[in-house]
Design a binder for these strands. Structure first.
Length: 232
DNA sequence: GCGACAG
DNA sequence: ATCTTGTCGC
């Protein structure tokens, strides 16, 4: 029974992903020098009374000064299970709830998770773009293996990368943002190309973390908010 | 049945 | 994602 529920769900979800796919454009729909605000999105979870709750934090920084411009969050019960390949369906509700609280309009969103680097090219960064109506980039900390294709380890030098090619198509890139640290996995979300995505990610990295600042700060913030909300 | 499996 | 201390290294 739980078995059939799950296959119904994945069928329904993959149909939605297939509908969105033709609308993806891996080209810049903006001018790079017009980028001012970059948002980072992340979530944290906890259990309470046998239910799963989550909080979504969005940090907006100024691309040039790296100063934090805005910091908002949302929280609530999480009802959709985690299924690899369908992360957006689980996290999008709280993400949009947090987006509604923004008073500024980010020019670009970075996500903790993949975009085009996905079984059906519909990772959370790509999926979310259709609700945000803004360019998005996927930034994952671990590799999602597709069609048994492994990634090639980039050189141990900041900025080094290798493309992840599957069936002659570039899905994304393993990017070494910092020397002596594991690479991260960058892919286009939507309305941006891979070179620009890589450039944006590299411009947001500092010595403190291998992740771009907006995503890193959002991650830290979710932990702080969880402490404030959980067990109450 | 077994292994894989973003967050 | 989350449960968790110390510990090796720059």
């Amino acid at each position: 029974m739980i078995e059939t529920d799950m296959s119904k769900l994945t069928k329904e979800f993959s149909d939605i992903q297939a509908e969105l796919l033709p609308k993806v454009k891996l080209e810049n729909t903006f001018k790079k020098d017009e980028i001012k605000l970059i948002a980072g999105v992340d979530l944290a979870y906890w259990e309470e009374h046998g239910k799963t709750f989550g909080t979504c934090c969005i940090i907006v920084i100024d691309y040039h000064s790296k100063e934090v411009i805005e910091n908002v969050y949302s929280y609530g019960e999480i009802t959709v299970p985690y299924i690899a390949g369908f992360l957006a369906f689980r996290e999008l509700p709280l993400i949009m709830k947090a987006v509604e609280k923004l008073t500024v309009e980010p020019d670009l969103y970075m996500f903790d998770g993949n975009g085009y680097l996905h079984y059906r090219h519909m990772g959370i960064a790509t999926h979310a773009s259709f609700f945000l109506h803004k360019p998005t980039i996927g930034v994952a900390k671990s590799y999602l293996r597709i069609k048994e294709v492994d990634f090639q380890m980039p050189e141990n030098q900041a900025g080094a990368y290798t493309n992840i090619v599957i069936d002659s198509e570039i899905y994304g890139r393993a990017l070494r943002t910092t020397k002596n640290v594991k690479p991260i996995f960058v892919s286009c979300g939507n309305w941006i190309d891979l070179d620009t995505s890589t450039e944006m990610v590299m411009s947001c990295v500092n010595k403190e973390s291998r992740l771009p600042i907006p995503v890193r700060l959002a991650d830290l913030e979710t932990h702080r908010v969880r402490k404030q909300l959980a067990h109450k």
